[in-house]
Simulated assay, not measured.
Amino acid sequence: MLTDLNIAILGGDARQLEVIRKLTELDANIILVGYDQLDHGFTGAKKMELEEVDFSLVDAIVLPVSGTGPQGEVDTIFSNKKIVLSSEHLKAAPATCHLYSGISNAYLNKIALDSGRKLTKLFERDDVAIYNSIPTAEGTIMMVIQHTDITIHQSNTVVLGFGRVGMTVARSFQALGANVKVGARRSEHIARIAEMGFTPFHLDSLKNEVWNVDVCINTIPTSIVNSDVISKMPSHALIVDLASKPGGTDFRFAEKRGIKAMLAPGLPGIVAPKTAGKIVANVLASLLIEDINSRKG
């Protein structure tokens, strides 16, 4: 249980509703910032403005999956008011205050370091990333169905990257009957790709592997689907980039070639916010309980 723990939840989308629900069930005291337009009421949760929060009493701060913007701005769909998290907010909190975010950036890393407060990036955890790969794969399937005029069955599908998302996406498309090729760099990934029944190739030869591609799905957050690669694709190809912004695709050149290319990060929160929210909520609750026990220990 999280009885008497004061947790400030700043901004977020529909996924955060599952986080709020889970933490209130565990008897935490919840402060909601950026939820003034939310009609739903949660027992044990109070809506407040950021300047009204007494951070000296806050044991944990929960940010949206997206963390903050480059200047500390926090996104929320339940308010039109601007929320900006600063190092002063963190410094006002107890030294044991723990900051939780889905992902991070240079700004968030800096204010956590400057304030001496611990920052946990939930999406760097294998369990969260693997669970999230399921709605990501389902959302990718939905996008491909919507934006092509062929079936996934017997399509020539290329998946770039064989991490936690790439593996689930490749397996899902193969299960639907696609001819799946997977590009990777590490020799152990190449071996696993072959073992799982996909056609492996090294990413250095990517431009030679896309001449007949129908669907190209990128999970690598660096420039990989560049103009050299896109110029070798047939004009009907669809590119779905699942990497975090700005993605790994030259979208300008794709448009110039008449190839449809879409950046689609955060699919779990779009296609299955309830499931995606429960994934974050369950892991976050476990971490908070561990944090409490470690303080007692």
Results as ranks from 00 to 15, higher is better:
6 N>G: 03
6 N>H: 07
7 I>H: 04
9 I>S: 04
9 I>N: 04
9 I>V: 10
15 R>S: 12
17 L>H: 04
18 E>T: 06
18 E>R: 13
18 E>D: 14
20 I>K: 03
26 L>F: 01
27 D>N: 09
28 A>T: 11
28 A>L: 11
30 I>C: 06
33 V>M: 01
33 V>I: 06
34 G>W: 06
39 D>E: 15
42 F>G: 10
47 K>M: 10
49 E>G: 11
53 V>Q: 07
56 S>P: 01
62 V>Q: 05
62 V>W: 02
74 V>N: 04
74 V>D: 02
76 T>W: 01
82 K>E: 08
83 I>H: 03
85 L>W: 07
87 S>Q: 12
89 H>N: 11
92 A>F: 00
94 P>K: 00
97 C>K: 00
101 S>V: 00
102 G>S: 09
102 G>D: 07
104 S>N: 15
105 N>Q: 13
110 K>T: 15
111 I>C: 09
119 L>H: 06
124 E>R: 14
125 R>Y: 05
125 R>N: 06
128 V>K: 05
129 A>G: 11
131 Y>A: 14
132 N>L: 08
135 P>R: 06
136 T>P: 09
136 T>R: 07
140 T>M: 07
146 Q>F: 00
147 H>C: 05
147 H>T: 03
149 D>S: 10
150 I>V: 05
151 T>K: 00
157 T>G: 03
161 G>D: 05
164 R>D: 02
168 T>G: 00
174 Q>D: 11
175 A>R: 06
176 L>Y: 13
181 K>Q: 15
192 R>W: 00
193 I>C: 10
199 T>H: 09
199 T>E: 14
201 F>P: 08
205 S>W: 06
207 K>S: 15
208 N>I: 09
215 V>L: 07
218 N>L: 05
219 T>C: 08
220 I>S: 07
224 I>S: 04
226 N>G: 11
227 S>F: 00
230 I>L: 15
232 K>I: 04
233 M>H: 02
235 S>C: 03
236 H>D: 07
241 D>K: 13
244 S>F: 06
244 S>N: 12
248 G>W: 10
249 T>A: 08
249 T>H: 05
252 R>S: 05
255 E>P: 01
256 K>D: 02
258 G>W: 05
261 A>T: 04
262 M>T: 08
265 P>S: 08
274 K>H: 00
281 A>P: 03
285 A>H: 06
287 L>E: 10
289 I>T: 09
293 N>P: 01
297 G>W: 09
